[in-house]
Design a protein around this nucleic acid. Structure first.
Lengths: 366, 366
DNA sequence: GAATCGTTTCAAAGCGCTTTGGGTCCAAGA
DNA sequence: TCTTGGACCCAAAGCGCTTTGAAACGATTC
């Protein structure tokens, strides 16, 4: 099905305001060159001319056509975020809004816009390729990488500036990233619980094909081993970062012959589910059962106040978004700088959900 | 600070692959016209030629430069979403991710991309103007309109296709929208509670400067009046759609001399806060205190299962996003069609949080 | 007075694509 | 045999901007 003919004749709203550079310069009796330079701050224009041009531009409500600018400069002043969406990885969704909000504000401050592409999981590599080859964006942000994420090598081979939020353990080539120290965060969380005397600590994790979840698990295991406790597969669950999933996982864990007295949850939403399951059994969080979670500091689900509901390892995903954006923009504007690689530490926040291990583990036959 | 000179000489990754239309047609020994037409499905090209061109394009890994295409056609194949962000309106954030996910998938299916701009509240009108005048987008989606939203008249005057998710009561000019019947939904929710015998029903609402919140309040009031109950301002709270806000509001309401025996909450996150406050008092949700909330069916906070936690009025914001996208695309491609205006009904889902009013309202002196 | 230099301006050549308004060629109809 | 008309293809003119390379001009300098 071919596009309609004579499309150029159809009055397009974007061209409704037919004040363009040519017309503006005609009215000013100046060349397009001079007008363009005056507006873009080149030094070869006298102050008086520049003023005259600026006034006229304001008067005639002129603003340069971004499409043409983009073609002429080869820069689109736009950053691509590609979100893969499927029934499997709703996780992204959760953290996504705050990350994007943080990044978006930075883009705006620097005259960049964000190009968001939501694609079904399997089409993701194609989306990256299209975005870059077709030149719609100047750079790309990669979110929630898997352990061996094909996107990274894909972007490396395309030679396009990008920054990864997170890391991919199995990718050896250097690239720019910003990550939270997931391993240490969950190690600290787990240790917090073992220090309180908990001997059976469960992990309710995200999907462990994702790099951050894999690292969290290794932090959990490291802490247990340091505490001289066994690493029991029956105490480890992983799945989507949703409330019902946390609930289901916690229920199943509490049904074990030797149920845990404490939980480490990989996110606040999982923690909410764990909390529901725990309370449904008549157990009190922070007394009968303890819980520490990772808290991305999501704006509408804050775990804050003097005494937050959950004891948590906190690190703002919004701040991470902003920082990734900043790093990417400077990479675009100064490609020869060394690759930025930042590891952030999460902060332990004492909340109401953790306390000393009960003498007799809840519901267990010791 | 002027941009660097000789920018065109800097090898830009987007041009690294220097297979363009001219080069491709040279190799094929055909004119650019023919190649372009072959690729774009025009009928004036023989099947054999078309095949030859398609093969060569694949072989040389050619894909047209979107920037140039955009300039030549006047269409950017991109839809703008502008999100105003401030400390006041975090609400958007919440619903935002799912709405955008729904819309984004539709865009992708139709070869459109989404241009997201996150701007500080006050810069929002300017952002719309810029986006449209500079021709970066073919259409715009407006989310979470206020009762009298300046954006709508702004977009109307710019004569750019747009669809509003929600409505602005005070804007009289016709425009395209899709909304949930917020008034009826909350009316139904409230009536559900009064039918259960509740005499004091509280409303924990979003900011009532936003249109949907204002409508929900009027639904609440209408239901009370029909039930012959007084509309008591002390039972009505409004604020950000966050968990702590729901918690604070519910605490304050439970501290009233005549506390409510039931709550209507404007979202699941608010309901989570209400739940926390209720349970903190040792009251049982669904027995001592009832609660019905509006449920946007957020993917990572599902209130689902056979017996959902909350009795709710449910309407998928993700579906709404998808539908808005569809409506906008058809408006763009067929501007002369009548303005679409759709009102969706939310569905009552019986959950665990509502039950008959207790004989003696919780903690009250009747 | 001629040569030099900095300032200010310009005409024109792109950027890579789409679309116009023709062409050419060959088979079918008059 | 001479139109028609369809099928196929092309050269060139944009789209609106940036950037080049040069020119015009007065002010210095030798």
């Amino acid at each position: 099905m071919p596009p309609p003919r004579h499309a150029a004749l159809i009055l397009h709203w974007g061209q409704g305001n037919d004040m363009n550079l040519k017309e503006l310069s005609r009215r000013l009796q100046l060349s397009q060159t001079t007008v363009s330079r005056a507006l873009n701050g080149y030094p070869e224009v006298s102050d008086s001319t520049r003023k005259r041009v600026a006034d006229a531009a304001a008067k005639f409500n002129y603003s340069p056509n971004a499409r043409a600018q983009t073609l002429a400069t080869g820069k689109s002043k736009s950053i691509g975020h590609i979100i893969a969406m499927s029934n499997q990885t709703e996780l992204t969704n959760m953290v996504f809004a705050d990350f994007v909000a943080g990044a978006g504000l930075i883009y705006g401050e620097h005259g960049y816009t964000m190009t968001l592409k939501i694609v079904p999981d399997r089409e993701e590599p194609a989306a990256y390729r299209a975005l870059s080859e077709r030149g719609t964006v100047d750079g790309v942000i990669v979110q929630a990488p898997a352990c061996n994420d094909p996107r990274i090598s894909c972007l490396l081979s395309l030679d396009i500036p990008f920054v990864v939020h997170g890391r991919a353990s199995d990718v050896s080539a250097p690239y720019a990233w910003l990550d939270v120290n997931n391993k240490r965060a969950i190690d600290t969380a787990t240790t917090h619980l073992t220090d309180l005397g908990h001997r059976r600590v469960a992990l309710v994790n995200g999907r462990e094909t994702l790099d951050f979840a894999a690292r969290r698990r290794s932090g959990y295991e490291a802490a247990l081993q340091r505490a001289g406790l066994p690493v029991d597969p029956r105490l480890m669950r992983s799945g989507d970062m949703s409330e019902p999933n946390g609930y289901d996982a916690a229920r199943a864990l509490l049904d074990e012959k030797q149920p845990p007295s404490a939980f480490v949850a990989s996110s606040v939403v999982l923690a909410l589910g764990v909390k529901r399951a725990v309370e449904e059994r008549g157990l009190r969080l922070g007394q009968d059962v303890s819980l520490v979670c990772f808290d991305d500091d999501i704006s509408y689900l804050p775990n804050a106040g003097e005494k937050p509901v959950f004891t948590a390892m906190r690190s703002s995903v919004r701040a991470a978004g902003a920082r990734c954006a900043t790093l990417l923009l400077s990479r675009i504007n100064a490609p020869d700088q060394p690759l930025p690689q930042e590891l952030w530490e999460a902060e332990l926040v004492q909340g109401l959900s953790s306390g000393p291990a009960p003498e007799i583990p809840a519901g267990a036959t010791p």
